[in-house]
Amino acid sequence: MIKNHPSLEQLRAYVDGTLGSCDSLVIAAHCDMCEKCQAEVAQLTEVLASESLSLKNELSDQPRYSSMIESILQLPELPQENAIVENVSIELDGREFVLPPSLRRYASVTGSWSKLVGKLWQAPVNIGGTGKANFIFMEKGGSVPEHTHKGRETTLVINGEFSDGMNTYKSGDFIYLNDTHTHSPLSNHEDGCLVFSIIDEPLHFTSGVARLLNPFSHLFF
């Protein structure tokens, strides 16, 4: 049962196409896994469509469209293109993780896994731009030192579960954190936990030895 969903405003901005592309990607992947949000998105799309394409404030100065119609009708029907998706899953240590459809295209631009401190694995996903996207795997007992965020971190649990001292998150859960949150994720699940996460600024560590990591946190995440 998925307990953590994007907010209604986030879903609405996603449907409207005004949410940033990084957050939108995580929401799209969440909707692959969450029937409730799928239905919500369908509903919002319908409402927004009829709002956007109504002619309430009709413009009196309509241009002439006849040449546009003519040129469109010259275009051939496009043949069927079957989307070729080579990878539907990613692999770590002999274990296969099936990805939600929205993330499959990124399997081919995912770098190799590297082992970090605390039974933690990370594979960077090259999405271009300034956002940093990673698959992160916590082995059972694995944890990330307590940290807060300078920017926003949007995370989707793909497999297994983890808790962060505030909540427990399971497959499909959507987690949105900004710089007002401090947390220390920990997985005690038998299967560990695989998440997909996008951060737009490096993490900021707040406790213990990990504080020393801060100057290097750009290496860490």
Binding site: G17, P101, R105, N126, G131
Partner: peptide, 13 residues
């Protein structure tokens, strides 16, 4: 001029 390689087809197929 966004550099992210995330286009609309990925988000809404």
């Amino acid at each position: 001029n966004r550099k992210e390689d995330i286009c609309s087809d990925d988000l809404w197929p």
